[in-house]
Amino acid sequence: MAREVEGDTPPKEKIRTTIWAETPEVDNPFAARVCHCHGYDVFGELITKASLPEYLYLLFRGERPTPEQARAVEILGVAFANPGVRDLSVRGAMNAGVADATSAAYLVAALSVGAGQNGGAHEVARCVELWNQNGRGLDLWRASLTAEPAEDAAPDIWLEPEHPPGFDPHGVSCALPVLQLLDALADTGLENSRWLREQRTALESFADHPLYLPGVAAAALADLGFGPEQAELLFLILRLPGAAVHALEQRGLGPNRYPFFARGLKLTDDPGPISDDLGIVV
């Protein structure tokens, strides 16, 4: 039976949203009968008509993408679904995996590490900020990428970037997957990606580092209308499948088959063996 839940005073607090609306079932106000996302009926229409890239775009941008935009999101989704077994975020996940932690812990670890500014999502956010600031103006990019870091910046939980966002601090030359992804995105018609393909070597010379994947992602996401935080979040989401499967795989293999860097750590402040209360020297 439906319970009377309205009508109390003062008015009940509500969650305000422009994204999601629900119509309750007639017998239970806590169960949704119809769910609308940005006006579209999710279970009545989207699940059979929209692709995942289309729905992701709709969620973040509030509007249905053009076929070219949906194709670009799909390309990004495939490109970043698995960052690879050596990626820092995947390594974070695998540590949770070898320890046989909860499945969610794999992803918490992947998100915590992959959130960073060295190849991670906050680097993508900073790079989108640069796209918003510089557009496709080569001189503006030159000024940004050659600017000295601010010395008197107020401290924040995020450190000042140690390399130009979007460019590989340890790269030697632009890696083949970077070029392949840039080509694929440029071929969908994204203007930023096309411009980046044309100006890549110039930008690399300003940055003094080769372009790498976060920079390619940021260019495309800025072109798709994603703000810095939206781009940061989508980049975090897109990279989780690889973290999940690599963590699962290492869970099966266990800690003994996973690097511990047993001889890699050099302790520089070691008191050495100390006799304890019993006079035993360890």
Binding site: V5, E6, K12, E13, K14, I15, R16, T17, T18, I19, W20, A21, E22, T23, P24, P29, F30, A31, A32, H36, H38, G39, Y40, D41, E45, L46, K49, A50, G62, R64
Partner: peptide, 18 residues
């Protein structure tokens, strides 16, 4: 603190077709 459907204050797009 469960929330029923009417505790969502929706202010977005009117229903539309895909």
């Amino acid at each position: 603190f469960p929330l029923h459907c009417n505790r969502v204050d929706y202010r977005g797009q009117e229903p539309r077709r895909w």
